[in-house]
Amino acid sequence: MVLRIRLARFGKKHAPFYNIVVAHARTARNSRPLEVLGTYDPIPKPPPPGTNARPWKDIKLDVSRARYWVGVGAQPSDTAWRLLSMVGILEPRFRVGQIQGKVVKAETAAKSLIPEEAEVAQ
């Protein structure tokens, strides 16, 4: 039977929370899986007050175990693929790589601008 790496929705109404699980493809969404690889909290957390940091999403993942399951033929769902590709387990699809590159470029550009402003201020 096909193994899938997929998300199982827990949490409450309007407060979703997902377990990242390895399960047989034909089992119910929230049935007991073979293994819980981690969690995905899709609600973005605000940055710490008083900083310029960006909001963030909290993901817990056993990377080595996920790599093992992919290695033995588990098929990630689209969302799981997106998440796993972020940590480099899979080839990026769904524009993950493009966006990441853009954000990094924008950030470095912003950082290179800041010292100039500081000099002007002085």
């Binding site: 293994e35 909001p55 999403k57 972020m86 966006i99």
Partner: peptide, 17 residues
């Protein structure tokens, strides 16, 4: 491990099953 995306950072924490 922080992965910057378009609107927010995805912060991955390595755990053990």
């Amino acid at each position: 491990r922080t992965v910057p995306q378009r609107r927010w950072d995805f912060v991955f924490r390595d755990v053990s099953v």
